[in-house]
Computed example of a mutant assay.
Amino acid sequence: MCWAACSVPGLLLWHTPTLARILDPFFIALNSLPKIALAPIIIIWFGSGLFSKIALAFIATYVVALLSAWQGTHQIDDSQVNLMRSLGANRNQIFRKVVVSSTLPWIIAAFRLNIGFALIADIGGEFISSDYGLGKMIFVAGNLFNLNVVWVGVFTLLVVAIVLYLEVVQLQRWLLPWERQQTHR
């Protein structure tokens, strides 16, 4: 899953706080840019095929995943880090045992957000330039005032979003079993 790979750089910024402070304004600027505005450039660079839609979805989700993971590293309880240091853990052990596990809820939250962002980017890319796909179908049907086909496309998108959301919920249950136990108390 792309979103997991996108979270890794955000986690790695924990190792280099100076670099993180330098890059922070650039991440904020990239996050505020409407990603769909990049669609024409991406389509010109990569063509109107599937790869350009994947690139658009990646661009739309990358900064959110990175920023969420990085923000999660700021929420780590310092007493856990200090405890690990007092037990003789090195920086990499602290990263693996404390940082990664503490930021997983933030990363899962980014996954949930990125479902919508990825679908928006994909459908937007298909609106702009595509020979096939759900976005193309909705676009053509909308131009022909065929509302039945538009609704079929919208409900299909809704089903895809729900299926992806349920996959993220399953991933959350697998990665964070303690959260499920806390909610049943």
Rank of each mutant, 00 (worst) to 15 (best):
I54D: 00
Y62P: 04
K53Q: 03
I36N: 04
W45R: 05
I41L: 14
I22Q: 06
P34A: 07
W45F: 07
S68R: 08
D24L: 12
S48A: 14
F26Y: 14
I76M: 06
Q71T: 12
D77S: 12
P34K: 09
F26I: 11
G49P: 02
Q75V: 12
G72D: 08
L38H: 03
S52A: 11
A37V: 14
Q71N: 10
D78A: 15
I22Y: 12
Q75R: 11
Q75T: 15
I36G: 03
F27C: 12
F46D: 00
K53L: 02
P34Y: 05
H74D: 12
I22N: 03
F27A: 11
Y62V: 11
Q75Y: 12
L23Y: 02
S32L: 07
G49A: 05
Q75H: 15
L56Q: 00
W70G: 00
I36W: 01
L38T: 08
V63P: 00
F26Q: 04
K53N: 03
A29L: 13
I43H: 02
V64I: 14
A29G: 08
G72R: 05
S32I: 05
I41H: 10
F26T: 07
V64D: 07
D77F: 09
A69V: 11
A65T: 02
L50R: 07
K35G: 10
A69K: 03
V63E: 00
D24S: 12
D77Q: 12
F26V: 12
G47P: 08
I54R: 00
P40K: 05
W45I: 11
Y62I: 11
A65E: 06
L23V: 09
A57P: 07
P34F: 06
G49D: 02
W45T: 14
W45L: 14
S48P: 14
I76F: 07
L30F: 11
V63I: 15
A39R: 02
A60S: 04
F51D: 06
K35E: 08
L33V: 10
A39F: 02
S32M: 09
F46V: 02
I59K: 02
Q75W: 10
H74P: 10
I41T: 13
